[in-house]
């Protein structure tokens, strides 16, 4: 198994995991984490590409991933603020209003 394959498999797994959780989970913090996991998968894929060919590393993907991380951090921050506001206004941490089950139910 080459290094490249390990990276590919890891990133595919993370993207799949994040996407699955985004669809299935209801608690908003979990969904935001799911998005972050998905993003990490994409970043790993990107970084692994900088080792294309034999020669030295390609610096461009790393620069792009750094930019991507900055974007992800700010999006996460906005998401967290929104979740806190939703919780403050509605007392719930879900998108769908209705019967509020305790947050532990999802563990």
């Amino acid at each position: 198994m080459t290094t490249e394959m390990i990276y590919s498999a890891t990133s595919t797994g993370l993207i799949g995991l994040g996407f699955y959780a985004l669809l299935v989970r209801r608690h908003l913090i979990r969904r935001l984490m799911a998005i972050n996991i998905m993003g990490t998968g994409v970043f790993i894929l990107f970084v692994s590409l900088s080792a294309r060919g034999d020669g030295e590393l390609d610096p461009v993907p790393q620069a792009m991933v750094l930019t991507g991380i900055v974007v992800a951090v700010s999006a996460t921050a906005l998401g967290l603020v929104l979740i806190r506001r939703i919780h403050a206004v509605t007392g719930s941490t879900r998108l769908t209003p209705g019967a509020v089950v305790s947050d532990e139910d999802e563990l």
Binding site: I15, L28, R31, G39, V42, G68, A75, G79, L82, I83
Partner: peptide, 19 residues
């Protein structure tokens, strides 16, 4: 707020698929 939150998740997910 809820509409905004759903919109955030959607737009981030869409962007990641694009990325």
């Amino acid at each position: 707020l809820r509409a905004a939150m759903r919109y955030l998740l959607i737009t981030l997910c869409g962007s990641l698929l694009y990325l």
